[in-house]
Design a protein around this nucleic acid. Sequence first.
DNA 1: ATTATCTATAGATCTATAGATAATGC
DNA 2: ATTATCTATAGATCTATAGATAATGC
Lengths: 209, 209
Amino acid sequence: MEKIRAIKGIPTQIKNADLVAQRHRQIVDAAVQLFIEQGFHKTTTRQIARAAGFSIGSLYEYIASKEDILYLVCDAIHAEVERGVSQAMNRASGGHNPLAEVIREYFLVCNRMSDHILLIYQETQSLPPRWRKKVLENEVRITGIFMEVLARLISSGDLPHISERSMELVAHNISVLGHMWTFRRWFLARHYSVEDYIELQTEFILGNV
Amino acid sequence: MEKIRAIKGIPTQIKNADLVAQRHRQIVDAAVQLFIEQGFHKTTTRQIARAAGFSIGSLYEYIASKEDILYLVCDAIHAEVERGVSQAMNRASGGHNPLAEVIREYFLVCNRMSDHILLIYQETQSLPPRWRKKVLENEVRITGIFMEVLARLISSGDLPHISERSMELVAHNISVLGHMWTFRRWFLARHYSVEDYIELQTEFILGNV
DNA sequence: ATTATCTATAGATCTATAGATAATGC
DNA sequence: ATTATCTATAGATCTATAGATAATGC
């Protein structure tokens, strides 16, 4: 009886864990492009295998189902967004207006990863419940970073005191107004540059906090 | 040679225009439920035909492709949202705080049509370019209603003067913060009632306008 | 005769796997 | 011997249409 390993909750017969990690990276890199261009459902597992550089048979040694690939993709995207936001937070802590700095850096991450964030909005519902739950947890964790910033600025007196609930919603609003730049880009980019967008939205958000 | 008619840009051989309208309604009613439950790609044309009460052969007398059905569905949803928002605007014009009234009514429409709005976010990208364009135009038109309200309130002096560009972005923000209640419902509804949400977001929006 | 509807299926996929083959290490 | 990879295909769809049938109106 073979012992079954699992990396990130995805079972595999392959023994070499480093190889699994490498193949997963290859799969993600190939799939993310195809999903952005064609969407999840119109992309075939064969296309992904070919783009990743191995056969359809090998692909299925590293994942158990097509949905597993979508999960790997969503997880990788969130990891990159989170890394960007965390860095921004550390860098911004000392600045003149730390909240404006964090918003700015976060919006720039959204601008860079526009297609990727849009993909998550469109395809999260195609994930089986188990994976969907994990992806939504990622979303909450990223919003949590904004909560920390707000909480710190309030306790240091740099922002007026507001209720916990109100602060939580402001954190979600910042998240979503960043995403808005990705899913309304078809309209917004015709009227505003990213810099315009950041400036106007920062005014909007700081207006009442 | 048969002359080909077209209702809403969808060609059909059926002569009786009322019948076409009725069948389109049946198709939309059947499809909207199935799409919400299963998504567009996992729903089959056979399921739609069965739920609509006729055969797969008849279905294809009224549409030319599965994408046509998605378009009819998206268009019907936007029509209902727009109706709700227009009514709200007329009703709210006289009130104490007209902007707060409009926001409230719009957010209630979003609450009622939560699943439908979410569907549009998820499946718009599955439409062929021609239909997608029309759906995005609907979105712009609904946002335009908020622009009118803002413009009116500014010119009557009920709101402070802000630039046209700034006002346009605020209109988009109102749209999107309504949608946010639908696509973050899995989180928000655990922490806030609709009424909480409306109250806090109204504060947030009015804070700086 | 004309219009609308249905049945049956062509034709074209696509996911996932079984079994064969190649590569690696003892 | 063990591990990783590949080829070939089973099996299960699904969209869209052709051609037959039923219903309606003159």
